[in-house]
Design a protein around this nucleic acid. Sequence first.
RNA 1: GCCGCAGUAGCUCAGGGGUAGAGCAGCGCAUUCGUAAUGCGCGGGUCGGGGGUUCAAUUCCCUCCUGCGGCACCA
Length: 619
Amino acid sequence: MDGSKGKPEVDLERMRHSCAHVLAAAVTKLYPQAKLGVGPAIADGFYYDIHTPTPLTSEDLPAIEAEMRRIRERKLPFVREEVAIDDAIAFMKSTHQDYKVELLDLLKSRGSTAAKGLDDPNLFENPAAGVSSVSLYKLGEFVDLCRGPHVEHSGQVGAFRLMRVAGAYWRGDNRNPQLTRVYGTTWANEADLKAYLFRLEEAEKRDHRKLGVSMGLFHIQEEAPGTVFWHPKGWTLFRTIERYMRTKLDNDGYVEVKTPQLVDRVFWEKSGHWENYRDAMFVAKPGKEGEEEDRLYAIKPMSCPGAVQIFRHGQRSYKDLPLRMAEFGACHRYEPSGALHGIMRVRAFTQDDAHIFCTEDQIPDESQKFCDLLRDIYKDFGFADLRVKFSDRPEQRAGSDEIWDKAESALEKGSSAAGLATTRNPGEGAFYGPKLEFVLRDAIGRDWQCGTLQVDFVLPERLDASYIGEDGAKHRPVMLHRAILGSFERFIGILIENYAGRLPTWLSPIQARMIPIADRHVDFAKDVARRLAHMQLPNGEGGVRIDIDASTERMQKKIRNAQIEQIPYMLVIGDKEAEAGKVALRLRSGKDLGAVTVEEAFERIAAEVGTRADIPVAP
RNA sequence: GCCGCAGUAGCUCAGGGGUAGAGCAGCGCAUUCGUAAUGCGCGGGUCGGGGGUUCAAUUCCCUCCUGCGGCACCA
């Protein structure tokens, strides 16, 4: 908040909410048959859900916005009026505001309009069930059910802009009719509004879908919706991350496995997936047309049932526990078409999955160990800001209360021992156990949930996993599902957006580019490139990933191209360098480090790769 | 999946009932250059697929696909 500089404090939320009323007033004026849903303030602005006989489209927005400006100019007062709830219902009925009537009925009977997971902050809430009166706000002719508060008059709603329309289900339930949600943004003044729009444009430039394609990392095409074609550079990035993760897991006591992609549906029936997720699973029926094999296979949507098969193959002893079984599992899920988003939400993805088979007593230690590992890894990728959500027992759940008590406290113990504070997510756990969800914050303040740690005492039961205990009897292991990156695809998308394409050197598909100034320098440049490619970088990264721009372009153009590709190091070679056997080192920040020996250049790159440092960028 | 919008050259985009145009990229030639764009030339498109209306459709209509913004979903 900057209320500094003697400026009057601005209550943006109040302005935004009032702006939603101005929008509603404008719409009801232009479309008298409009029925209103809810219209809260949200981050950066507001929305209002509206039903009109023919749905509003973006083409209608300019006229609505113009009407809103007229209302702003008239400086109409917001007038609060407390009325008996039955009077309010009668009034809303008389104006055919069916949705408002529905809300009022809820208020009357339950004292709250809370829908699942989302309670509308703009409406009256009464802890005691049932309310007898509600507040209405008048703005000129327009009357709305609302808790307030509002600015004094419509001249104070600030600088706004209607942004877009979208469909939204009434009360967030897809069985309900869909209203048109009009989104707007509101700021204290025109300058702030402009700054916001500028920020949006900047965020758009980070979009991994554009950057990833222009950086030559991957593409997606029509015939394979929601699945990624990884190009050489993108796959280099993928493999770099995979190699890094593998090393981390090797050092942390994991074993790695690979389980089948196609498994008979009978197997998924046993695991329970067929029943719950059949619609979201890809299936395959092999064989000649008309003579297909009489079995239906499903492509695995997740790796855990496969891991259990390996666990239960042969006998396990308590001495084998905890058994940390990792798999970079390629999973396929038939995600709803509207959910697909670049490489962040896809139908084929690779989880950095692992299943820890352990005893109940081992859960706290394993949780702590995992939290430590996860934080360590996030730090290496440049994410220091981490928060943890703790989702506890849902209403619908398997397992006794004792077991839940144990699992929940074990998870809490583990995360707090790792020095992580958790926020509670009541009732949001899986039916099979509680979970921790790890959320990282990126460079422009967006949150991404990536990691997860879930306790599961159902699947070992369903798939009959057991081990022989110290007592010689069979016992049921607990299974911890855990992921750090979540999926490689999504995590790479996050990395691209976090770094705006300027990946740290250790992750850059091309770390250095040779730029010979003239043809006569090409041979020397090739020689330098060869040498650097054969020197061993730390962390088992292999040689420097280097290429050479031997085109007939001018040096300036080659530099520009390397800049656009965000290559961390440019090694320029002309007569002076060839003579001295050196290279002129230029950073993508624009900094010119002058002529250095090949060894010096290597040391510099190696140091950066070794610390996984992010290179400072030009302002 | 639902609501709304969009799909024209590899990319960004203009155009519009009479079978298309720019910039960048690509290719060719010339240039051999000192830290973010050398010049000239050339090629490139079933205007997302299918159907309909029309003498004529890339343009209008229907439908499917894909994408975009949300909603719903995310084991």
